[in-house]
Design a protein around this nucleic acid. Sequence first.
DNA 1: TCTGGGGTCCTAGGACCC
DNA 2: TCTGGGGTCCTAGGACCC
Length: 403
Amino acid sequence: MNPISTRADATILHADLDSFYASVEQRDDPSLRGRPVIVGGGIVLAASYEAKRMGVYTPMPEFAARRLCPSAVVVAPRFEAYSEASRAVFEVFHDTTPLVEGLSIDEAFLDVAGLRRIAGTPAEIAARLRAEVLRRAGLPITVGVARTKFLAKVASGVAKPDGLLVVDPGREIEFLHPLPIGRLWGVGPVTERKLHARGIHTVGEVAALGEAHLVAMLGVGSGRHLDALANNRDPRPVVTGKRRGSIGSQQALGRGRKAPDTIEALLLGIVDRVARRMRAAGRVGRTVTVRLRFDDFTRVTRSRSLAHPTSATEPIRDLALAVLRDAAPMIEQRGITLIGLSVGNLESVGDSTEQLLLPFGRKDQSGLDGVVDGLRSRFGHAALTRASLLGRRSGLEVPRLPD
DNA sequence: TCTGGGGTCCTAGGACCC
DNA sequence: TCTGGGGTCCTAGGACCC
């Protein structure tokens, strides 16, 4: 009998654009190529590798970066251009494999298992992916290849910039255990401090600690999570079709007193932006969270939930204002330096027609005409059109909509 | 070094229901 | 009259990620 290999192949790619915003600027303005570039808006949003070599990092205050790197060209961010570049890059991802899990505007996991016959080994696919991203989007990208998501991500981090690194399944521990704990997904400044205080500096040392110890130190969630990663257990599959759970916006205000009217006006602007984005995305939500940051950089959040999900501006605005007024004494006393709002508990408009009709007490199709106006005011016309289409498709006689 | 804007996930207590 | 345990939702806060 032939021995059956139980060890899975390294088929997960982590693709991560290098200094994304700065690279887009260098791509679009040839005079910036080869020079230190900082994309800044108060803080450093991105720095080219030329700037990083001088010690510039994200999110360093802009003035500090200028002092550190006087020869740097500082450019204002162009978020539209970055979204467009991201779209082009994700097109390449999707042309490579249907199994794409986006993590942010500039990185994604790709599962290329099963593509060997038609597309070659994962290393070959990764090399081609890098070349294609450069050709079609004009951007450098680093790819890590491994058996698990975590190892693939670490690999791309190690290979940066403009690199490709495959972690051979036979050498995973050898690769993983010497790494500093900061490389572990979920270890930020706080956890790092706690571990350093106990003399733990490498992933191998975390692995040796044992789950019980980690749980006692960091809580059940983080403890188990870190124990698993450090011991090279990461069974998470690449998941497609994930949707956001919240949509929000915020604005830093700088120090100094602001009149209550000014703060309200800012919040209204934010509500408007968020509601607009929700409608554009075809999402409705129920939980409205107002976020405040004070002069001393402490933060609070205050949230309330609506009875029914919505993407209409008015109910969100009313609730947000009520929450803000409750917080007025706090703001008066502590000074405000940031205001933000997000809407969570998101659902997709059109997930089910019933969900749309439920708030109106209509589970069947009798007398639907009368609810059209109500639906429009609640969800907006575009969402209603989609719902109507879906309703018809699922056999409901949803009334035709006036234009 | 004094800190932007977009998110995710986890924890924990209290209300409420069965 | 005094009392369980489980499940779910809501709210607040914290850590983390890019």
